[in-house]
Design a protein around this nucleic acid. Structure first.
Lengths: 205, 205
DNA sequence: CCTTACATGTAAACCGTTACATGATTGG
DNA sequence: CCAATCATGTAACGGTTTACATGTAAGG
């Protein structure tokens, strides 16, 4: 079992939906994988070159005037088999790398304005991602094709998790603006429930 | 603004809580950062060596009999400043790399048993992480020190997000065992609700 | 006019993971 | 007796990110 799925394999995966250029593949990554996998041109183009050298994809050159030739890649039978084999051997790991949470862990070392700015930015970012997913969900509902089904899991996952994340961060952000009432007084049930899921009354002062 | 926070900087951060050995630091990473940052010995030890060479940490050698000498690292003033500067310059990014979601995206290419196994494993993994966070939350509540406060945000975040993730995956897993009712009937309001984050009564057995 | 989108690629730097190497003590 | 814990480190490998390099066409 290989722990990781590299860009090369992901390119095969994208091409399993149909032929595409490197540029198209990048677009696909951005639209569909953006909330769980990232790849830039710097990894996609070399990956495609290696795949072509290995006979896993076929290239069709479509000359453009002015623009560089558009190279359209298509999965070969060998490529399809390789991709299925890779899926079979891949462990379903799930990793987060969050500078945001590290910063919040060390929040006591940062000025309050910075904390507020960080939280604002994160809420905005989550909302941006949510908007993207909602557009996809709406499109799927309209299309109603069988092919939309497999994607739905990931979209639903993203909506569920991002919503929870946004709500949590937003509620903590709101606390920063209204700290006067109870700097650390007892009840404040909403915040408590949020922070720990284990209700915990601070024995005030 | 540097996009990323490397292991070197994170070591400074851990040491800002007090002196520790490389071994201790790894433990800290596992216990406290596990759901948003990973680091192994292979990156921690070289990082500490570089930090020492740069004068950002001081080493105190504590000879042990039998065991290799325990090297306890402590932040120097220069180290503390460097860490604060790094925090100031760090963007609060937040990235996910999920082989799990990639596999689910291509679920139509995998046998149903595999899908079931993947979902089961992921639910188990989320529950493992949740148990860890709940232990921390419980410990914090007991300790009740001022130092617990900054950590609380991250623990609360983890609880909120992991709970949502676990619930979503578990509900989808349950559907696999009871798929007969509506293979592809027209409206299917339940499925829509599910895909968009609604917790959902399992249409029992 | 200027920015965005289209379109492909290379090279080097940077980092992290993995595997290797060593070895005593404690608890089941 | 075997596994886990304590404890540190190196070297090779693999992979991604970043910066560089080039150029047209359409739309605001």
């Amino acid at each position: 079992m290989s722990q990781t799925l590299d860009v090369k394999t992901l390119c095969l995966g994208v091409l399993s939906h149909g032929p595409a250029s490197g540029y198209d593949i990048k677009k696909y990554f951005e639209q569909t994988f953006s909330h769980f996998y990232l790849a830039g041109y710097g990894s996609i183009y070399p990956a495609l070159a290696e795949l072509a050298a290995a006979g896993l994809v076929a290239i069709e050159d479509r000359p453009h005037e002015g623009r560089p030739d558009r190279k359209v890649y298509a999965l070969t039978e060998a490529g399809r088999e390789r991709f299925l084999a890779a899926l079979r051997e891949t462990e379903p790991s799930h990793k987060v790398r969050s500078e945001f949470l590290v910063l919040m862990h060390f929040a006591h070392l940062l000025p309050p304005e910075r904390i507020a700015a960080i939280l604002d930015e994160r809420v905005a970012s989550f909302e941006h991602d949510l908007a993207l997913l909602e557009r996809i969900a709406a499109g799927d509902a309209a299309a109603e094709g069988g092919c939309a089904d497999p994607r739905r899991f990931c979209v639903g996952y993203g909506l569920a998790v991002l919503t929870a994340a946004r709500d949590y961060v937003a509620s903590r952000r709101a606390e920063l603006d209204a700290p006067r009432s109870t700097p650390r007084a007892a009840p404040k049930p909403a915040a408590v429930a949020l922070a720990s899921a284990g209700p915990r009354r601070k024995t005030g002062t």
